[in-house]
Simulated assay, not measured.
Amino acid sequence: MKPNKSFHKTTEQDSHYSNLENMPVADILKNINKEDNSVPKAIEKALPQIESLVIKIVEKIKNGGRLFYIGAGTSGRLGVLDASECPPTFGVSPNLVIGIIAGGDKALKHAVENAEDSTNTGWEDLMAHNITSKDMVVGIAASGTTPYVFSALKKCNESQITTASITCNKNSPISRISKYPIEVIVGPEFITGSSRMKAGTAQKLVLNMLTTTSMIQLGYIKDNKMVNMMLSNEKLKNRGVKMLQEQLNISQQEAISLLETHKNVNKAIQTYYERSKNQTH
């Protein structure tokens, strides 16, 4: 199956708003906000699809697999962003959730000509990470037709690697070849075809759901706290101290001492409980 160039894309339909250059600032903001408010409702319709994918991601990671995001342009940048935020938030290895963008790191800041049109480099970029059937690959493409993503998912299917996708058009080619497709139909953009807007917002929210829910299920969150976060600045260290004080009912100084020793809130909590248990025997 090849991406169909005549595929009808609601993301490319004309905006509901005209003569934007003559619209007062207050009206521009009001109308952008009005359109943005439709995104969560569109995601709500896709919750069963998102749930199925989360369950599979958790299964894959529990069995030693990794989660890959692959995309081009805005979609690729959002995937890299979500992947890069997992280590500091959940304390996981940077090799557990991996974001790949067409054109490489340069494309994070600058458009790379024809990068999204390649039908070979998506698979090559995945192979550079020694991808196996243990892993999960999520293709991100607002249009649902991006050749870089489509061809990479197609090769994954041929190699028995589980595929998923996040798109914003109904029954797109990428959705049709994905084992776990997520379709968030947000409709025309405020600026015609500018999928960095509603489509990008939808993708970001879905990515938040995928990793956050998966990491909760995998035990990286305790109660509602980021007990495995990287303590990379004073704000996070202070947050860690407060967590320990509340969880263990100890003084600030004792919490600081525990955190300085173990460098991790969860490890500090476990050690404290083990020490207390041993002292009672």
Results as ranks from 00 to 15, higher is better:
residue 157 N to A: 07
residue 167 T to P: 12
residue 141 A to Y: 01
residue 87 P to R: 15
residue 195 S to V: 14
residue 119 T to E: 11
residue 199 A to W: 03
residue 153 L to C: 13
residue 160 Q to T: 13
residue 178 S to K: 08
residue 179 K to R: 15
residue 83 A to D: 11
residue 105 D to N: 12
residue 80 V to D: 01
residue 122 G to A: 12
residue 162 T to I: 13
residue 72 A to C: 09
residue 194 S to F: 14
residue 170 K to P: 04
residue 111 A to D: 08
residue 127 M to A: 12
residue 199 A to P: 00
residue 111 A to C: 03
residue 122 G to P: 11
residue 118 S to N: 05
residue 178 S to G: 14
residue 110 H to C: 02
residue 151 S to W: 06
residue 139 G to Q: 05
residue 125 D to L: 04
residue 187 G to Y: 08
residue 164 A to H: 10
residue 161 I to M: 06
residue 197 M to V: 04
residue 114 N to Y: 08
residue 118 S to F: 00
residue 75 S to M: 02
residue 133 S to M: 14
residue 85 E to T: 02
residue 161 I to E: 08
residue 71 G to D: 00
residue 100 I to C: 05
residue 122 G to V: 14
residue 139 G to V: 05
residue 77 R to L: 06
residue 76 G to W: 01
residue 177 I to F: 13
residue 136 M to L: 15
residue 185 I to W: 05
residue 180 Y to S: 09
residue 89 T to I: 07
residue 140 I to K: 00
residue 110 H to R: 08
residue 138 V to F: 14
residue 183 E to S: 10
residue 174 I to G: 06
residue 174 I to K: 07
residue 178 S to P: 15
residue 146 T to H: 01
residue 94 P to Q: 11
residue 201 T to I: 02
residue 183 E to H: 02
residue 146 T to V: 08
residue 175 S to H: 03
residue 133 S to E: 15
residue 192 T to M: 05
residue 193 G to I: 09
residue 146 T to Q: 02
residue 174 I to C: 09
residue 141 A to R: 00
residue 76 G to A: 06
residue 100 I to D: 04
residue 89 T to V: 08
residue 193 G to K: 08
residue 175 S to W: 01
residue 148 Y to H: 06
residue 156 C to L: 09
residue 87 P to M: 15
residue 193 G to Q: 10
residue 91 G to P: 13
residue 145 T to Y: 11
residue 173 P to T: 07
residue 187 G to A: 13
residue 125 D to Y: 03
residue 72 A to W: 08
residue 121 T to Y: 03
residue 108 L to F: 02
residue 193 G to T: 09
residue 193 G to A: 11
residue 88 P to F: 07
residue 168 C to L: 04
residue 134 K to I: 10
residue 161 I to S: 09
residue 81 L to T: 00
residue 135 D to W: 10
residue 142 A to W: 07
residue 124 E to F: 08
residue 107 A to H: 01
residue 130 N to E: 15
residue 71 G to R: 00
residue 82 D to H: 02
residue 168 C to K: 02
residue 184 V to F: 05
residue 159 S to R: 12
residue 142 A to R: 04
residue 190 F to Y: 15
residue 115 A to R: 05
residue 115 A to T: 13
residue 146 T to P: 01
residue 162 T to Y: 12
residue 198 K to Y: 00
residue 111 A to T: 08
residue 159 S to W: 04
residue 110 H to N: 09
residue 147 P to I: 14
residue 90 F to S: 10
residue 93 S to R: 14
residue 112 V to A: 04
residue 176 R to Q: 14
residue 192 T to E: 06
residue 160 Q to S: 14
residue 168 C to I: 03
residue 113 E to W: 04
residue 101 I to S: 07
residue 144 G to R: 01
residue 191 I to C: 06
residue 86 C to Q: 14
residue 98 I to R: 01
residue 93 S to F: 13
residue 90 F to M: 09
residue 127 M to E: 13
residue 91 G to D: 15
residue 202 A to M: 12
residue 122 G to F: 09
residue 201 T to C: 04
residue 143 S to E: 00
residue 108 L to I: 10
residue 113 E to H: 10
